[in-house]
């Protein structure tokens, strides 16, 4: 029996913007599920407001975003703003997709604690999520 008081990590995986390349997002969702987490998957074409609102309502610990269209420098800051506007300040943010090295510093400054570029393994992502979620009741 698992003790019912055990902490369940909840992760939101979403694709902001319009690109439909969700292979990575789905593989990551599945890897997180297979490592015992609850993954709220909202799919493609999510606006920053939809993502922030889902993060709020689902009370997730972690939000993972994926963009392959190159719109990350426009859309990621908008997601961060939308989260702040809702008082959701304690979620761990990570990002994946086609993100050039030169954007990494700016995204870190924005609050993205994990940035996973092409070639990253799901194991790295799972370990990142586990390590970043602080024990909470």
């Amino acid at each position: 029996m698992t003790t019912t008081e055990q902490r369940q990590i909840r992760v939101l995986i979403a694709k902001p913007g319009l690109d439909g390349h969700d292979r990575g997002a789905k593989v990551v969702a599945r890897a997180l599920r297979d490592s015992g987490m609850e993954v709220i998957y909202t799919g493609i074409r999510q606006t920053p407001e939809m993502i922030a609102e889902a993060a709020l309502q689902e009370d997730v610990d972690v939000v993972g975003l994926s963009i392959l269209s190159g719109a990350h420098m426009e859309l990621f800051p908008r997601v961060v703003e939308a989260l702040k506007a809702r008082g959701v300040s304690d979620v761990v943010l990570f990002a994946g997709g086609i993100i050039p090295e030169e954007d990494v510093a700016a995204l870190r400054a924005l609050g993205f604690r994990g940035i996973f570029r092409p070639g990253a393994s799901t194991q790295e992502i799972v370990e990142f999520v586990r390590a970043s979620v602080e024990p909470r009741e």
Binding site: G17, L18, S69, G70, L75
Partner: peptide, 15 residues
């Protein structure tokens, strides 16, 4: 979506 639609934000001319 037109280029000035809110849904198009950040995506205009990208891919």
């Amino acid at each position: 979506y037109d280029s000035d639609d809110p849904m198009a934000e950040g995506e205009v001319g990208k891919v």
